[in-house]
Design a binder for these strands. Structure first.
Length: 237
DNA sequence: CCTGGGACATGCAGATTTCC
DNA sequence: GGAAATCTGCATGTCCCAGG
């Protein structure tokens, strides 16, 4: 995905509410921006970090700018906008650039399933004789130490646990079910379940994988004006 | 001390209304 | 009648305050 307008650079003062962060711009002015992240943003919201903002150009919004990227440990870019990984995956699916997903399929966003929704469903042409594939995308942005190992989740997640169960049920019903870790963080080259953060989730993950739910991880390439899904990276379960 | 609820901002889907 | 515009509800984690 490419941003329509150039990103604006600043420094984080503080993320002080779920949706809000204060940023200092290059000219010294301070603004409040929308923080579009549903997680704890562990290690991604350190005061004084360099940050990049997108301009919504939307006059109806209370806060014109949206926090997109942060610089972690003064060297790695990471994307904190949780809507982006979903888009990156969608683009890659539509471009047929993920080798694990082949065949003549249509991409359905946010398909409804039993008790909620998942991120994507791939519906195959009749000739393919294949039941749908379900995909849930998770964003990985927690690098605990500078060792290339990304951790998920970054906080206890009851909801994430539910998604795992949902994928397992779909798999048991005969569908392909895939958990796709999208990793928009330049310092992460592999992913593992964070059992030190959410042991229940880590346990459930290894369990559903054992039962046949697939897990994939893809790194993300940053360029001056956007991001693209890059290549597969290993997942340690 | 613990729990519950509200506020916070946005994007999106789905429903409903309006308008030609 | 059908398209477009508008509304409604949901999802989401953190923080703070009130009440038990």
């Amino acid at each position: 995905m490419q941003y329509e307008l150039p990103l604006i650079e600043g420094r984080l003062i503080k993320r002080y509410k779920r949706f809000l962060a204060d940023i200092r711009l290059a000219d010294g002015s301070e603004i409040t921006v929308h923080c579009p992240n549903t997680g704890s943003m562990k290690r991604c919201a350190e005061p004084d970090s360099r940050v990049w903002l997108s301009d919504s150009a939307n006059p109806k919004r209370k806060y014109q700018f949206t926090w997109e990227w942060v610089e972690v440990d003064q060297k790695y870019k990471a994307c904190v906008n949780t809507a982006r990984p979903n888009r990156l995956v969608e683009e890659a699916l539509l471009a047929r650039s993920i080798p694990q997903f082949t065949g003549d399929y249509q991409v359905v966003r946010e398909p409804k399933v039993e008790d909620g929704r998942l991120d994507f469903r791939l519906d195959f042409a009749p000739a393919e004789g294949q039941t749908p594939t379900y995909i849930e995308v998770k964003s990985v942005t927690l690098l605990e130490q500078d060792n290339g190992l990304g951790c998920f989740p970054d906080a206890v997640t009851a909801r994430g646990l539910k998604h795992l169960q949902r994928l397992l049920v779909l798999h048991q019903e005969g569908h392909r079910a895939v958990l796709l870790f999208c990793v928009p963080h330049e310092g992460i080259q592999r992913v593992r379940a964070a059992d030190h953060i959410d042991p229940a989730y880590a346990k459930a993950l290894s369990e559903v994988v054992k039962q046949g739910v697939e897990v994939l991880a893809y790194s993300v390439k940053f360029d001056h004006a956007g991001m693209t899904l890059l290549n597969e990276i290993p997942v340690d379960i």
